[in-house]
Design a protein around this nucleic acid. Structure first.
Lengths: 194, 194, 194, 194
DNA sequence: TATGAATGAGCCTTCATTCAT
DNA sequence: CATGAATGAAGGCTCATTCAT
């Protein structure tokens, strides 16, 4: 039955994402993943061709979840939409901390089998931001010579860093407090051109 | 002679930093490091007590180099100084790409032996930025309720992300082009409060 | 219905004999056999108690087929009968190449569960040859001191080797060409005593 | 020191050849080989890239030993030389029983990594025999239309079969007794044409 | 000071076998 | 009768580490 396999795969993903985000890919063993998922070690190999493929599939699974959050319809003018997208990123990382940690760790690690997958996901997320920046340039709300590609990466990384530091160092603070700072920085940036 | 040992250690560091930044700590073997450094495997153990100590020493070696750059005296008003500090960060990453990659990878990886070391270095760098932000708040150039800790982390992460994307995706672009975007974002932020 | 089971078993035999003759017993998996036979893995275990039993049954199945060929009634004088028996062996190997390969492989492998079965079959085949040699000795057409046991083994092995080399190296040659050489060797042998 | 490695490799060969000839390649574990050779499991992998390479190297090592025996200078007329070559084959198998068993087992097993190596060795041995048969044809001592390639294979296989049966079933019999039968068969064959 | 052959704990992976459907 | 998801024992292999030279 496919439903059973699908359930097993999901449990393996959930077990793997936590373990790997904490100890790294190399230090996480297949046995640990299987045990945490409550299945036998062989089951991992029945469902995935190996540790590498499990990890690659995990990345793709993580991407789908990130995509759902970032693609949420944004209403209002671009400036408002931008704030909302960054809030969504912050919220996503708050909820899927382990997954985020893992994506960051692998983002700049070249020469991994799954590097392309991770890079692609990241580009999609940054693309959303850069697209809104383009809109703002078109409206004259941002300088024409702004490199929206670089700026999109900058805003994405800014939120990413803030979010992970929040979860790592001050997990008790509410999301709104963190978002307030992000909003303040963003507001300043948007106001400057006027 | 100590000079010879020192040279051997440096060669091992340089070999290790590149290898690890590309393939990760777990996937990099002592043999590979030795081979790339042009020494025998046993030599690694003659110079370091083990792989972990080599890696810890490597981190500290990297920190010294980062410290040199960030501690460079910053002159002028805080706003100018801030721009210069971020420029220094960008320049450092441009020059020591592999080391930066490696530090980022380990930053949010909890449960590693060297996690504390990495975290400490990072805090020093962010501390410099937050300190300047505090100065600006004191001068009334930034709102009083700004969380300078979070904002420092945000600016640090912004530059970090931009820098690594630059080296990874468009290494042929000159530093100044990238810095222009950073400066534009920063300027907006600083101007907003006025 | 037994007919269905019987068909399934035969398909498993045919799949197994080819696979094992090519890659060996150890390197052939139950999954591969099932797949080639067009059934699910569990079906193998529904029809046989395990891999060993499948293999033992396969040997016995192979033996029946070999027996049919070797037991074919041989007419005429012993010298003619001998030539015919060797021709039958050659023809059998030509037709059941995979099975022959497999029997040879296991013949001198001591310490296997099915070693006795294989050895027995082989003895029957050699026994037919040795019996004819005994007849020839009784008729005075061969020297009295000939060790017909060893000589039977020699003739059997001679044909076996020639036959497998034929199938392996020059499968396009007609049986008659190969048999001509065997006949020439045999004729010389029989003529010598006169 | 290379001498040490070489000694280790030889010990591994000697351990492997016996174990594999008795239980087969698949059923022999690397641990068993290492234990019998008196080294740690890791040593096998330090000296060979894997189980397959160990086996391939073993085959080549076995070939060298076979070659030494078969290439021994044969004096006298071709007919005498032929008898001596076959005696050498018989003697070799008597002395290196395990190796012979192993070569036979793999000879007709297609699709193995080492198949080519085994085949090549065998061809050399058969080549010696066929060469002498060619000489005999040239001298008019054998019919012109004899396929010396097939006949060489036949004589080789004849002796091989006899030799292995001897070692397996009646190891207590002296070589000379077995050789007598081989000589009788060969003599008949050579006499026929006259 | 440096080397590299040897080690063995531990990991990834395979595969014969079981069993609920 | 047949299936295929799940299992876990067993084996191939890696690699940090040791040590005699």
């Amino acid at each position: 039955m496919t439903a059973r396999r699908e359930a097993t795969r999901r449990r393996l993903f959930e077990a793997a994402v936590t373990l790997i985000s904490e100890h790294g890919y190399g230090a996480t063993t297949v046995s640990q993943i299987a045990e945490r998922a409550g299945v036998a070690k062989g089951t991992v190999y029945y469902n995935f061709s190996g540790k590498t493929e499990l990890y690659t599939a995990l990345m793709e699974w993580g991407v789908s979840r990130l995509a759902e959050h970032m693609r949420a319809p944004v209403s209002g003018p671009p400036s408002t939409a931008l704030a909302e997208v960054l809030r969504a990123e912050l919220a996503f990382i708050g909820t899927h901390e382990a997954l985020a940690r893992l994506l960051v760790t692998e983002t700049w690690q070249t020469g991994q089998a799954w590097h392309a997958t991770v890079q692609q996901i990241r580009n999609e997320a940054i693309g959303v931001i850069s697209g809104l920046l383009d809109d703002l340039v078109a409206r004259g709300e941002l300088p024409e010579d702004l490199d929206t590609g670089v700026a999109g990466s900058a805003l994405f990384g800014m939120v990413l860093t803030v979010a992970l530091d929040w979860r790592t160092l001050q997990p008790e603070r509410p999301l709104e407090e963190i978002h307030a700072t992000v909003r303040a920085l963003l507001a300043g940036f948007l106001a400057a051109h006027r």
